[in-house]
Design a protein around this nucleic acid. Sequence first.
DNA 1: CGGGAGATTGAGCCCCGTCAAAAACAGTGG
DNA 2: CCACTGTTTTTGACGGGGCTCAATCTCCCG
Lengths: 210, 210
Amino acid sequence: MTTHTMREFSARELHKPLFPTVIGQPIPFYPSGTEIYSQGEKAGNLFQVQFGCVRVYRLMADGRRQISAFHMSGDVFGFEAEATHQFFAEAIGGTGVRKILLTPEIAASPMFLPLALQTMSRAQQHLLVLGRQNAAERVAAFLVDMAERQGGLDHLDLPMPRGDIGDYLGLTIETVSRIFTKFRQMGFIQLEGSREVEILNRQSLQGMSE
Amino acid sequence: MTTHTMREFSARELHKPLFPTVIGQPIPFYPSGTEIYSQGEKAGNLFQVQFGCVRVYRLMADGRRQISAFHMSGDVFGFEAEATHQFFAEAIGGTGVRKILLTPEIAASPMFLPLALQTMSRAQQHLLVLGRQNAAERVAAFLVDMAERQGGLDHLDLPMPRGDIGDYLGLTIETVSRIFTKFRQMGFIQLEGSREVEILNRQSLQGMSE
DNA sequence: CGGGAGATTGAGCCCCGTCAAAAACAGTGG
DNA sequence: CCACTGTTTTTGACGGGGCTCAATCTCCCG
């Protein structure tokens, strides 16, 4: 594990809180790869990403992994139907995560239900991708989704490594890499390093993922 | 479309209502294959299955279909993050569905959130199946899940045709059929017609789907 | 008994997973 | 600034699981 410097963040860097934060707590900083919660742990808190990115996933006994969602700046996650967490949540790269104590008042707040339903809706949308789309369509859908979530610009950052993308899309790391190469050769995207993507032909990507 | 006789159902046949029903409405009966709601339609109602079975699905432009859930007697469905439905819901076989007007009081009821979260949780669980399990594991998971939802007995009814199972599991109808045959040959299940399954070796099925 | 929908079975192929190696990249210390 | 090391990504060769196409079978109902 690489060492990281804990630091305080200025208010301007941080997302506007949707709910009151636990009083007196500094925004916790999670170094790359560290656990936010784990399967079996008692649930009952929500989390809001302030900066960075979080992966939420399940593991099978033999190590196969399915990432059910990536959460980016502003996203609220940690909704659970059970009393204990059914998933693992980990920071991807250094990530700031605000913890929200899940009180009855917050559960009754008008912000709460729409956020829970958004998590549901994203999962349902992703079922179509995993169940019925081929590798190229999955990667295209992923790029379009990431671009939208980063403000709809043509330039986007991928905070996560290829392995995470594969485990999110139900593909292997090699297949993801091959599709990226293919899209580059077809002139759909341009890569600047492995984590930065320039979308050159959004039409084609969008059409492919529908 | 086959013709069906509309009839009234005695109170004993019906599930105990979780929420008050729309006054004066008889429980609607949906003949096999009929639409309950469709994509783009205005959302804002919940539905509770009284008997029979419902499939909720999405379609791609080229006709590929992903069933995101089956809903059986007692289940509540129709939760949406948006103002319009993002899915189609259809009866499988003759099905009774109670409509629940989604008033602010019901949305605030203590029953409501857990039901919404259960829909979310089921979708997330299904992501692992679609993303990371092979055909045999998917069918095993499906059988175990259906058995649990029918009271944990070793005998279970499959209200839906093979095509629906395929579109739920992200497989073709042929692959589903082949796996059923394989499980029969391995002594895991016994088939009585195509819609009734006797589970002979639950251990193996369960172990396969974990 | 006949007709039709659904289910099963078979043959062949292709997409994507597996295994392996090379290349690109990042970090560390000299 | 560069050499060294470990990690991530890319690329290649190959095989297999599941899809496609097609034929047959089973099960209902009339």
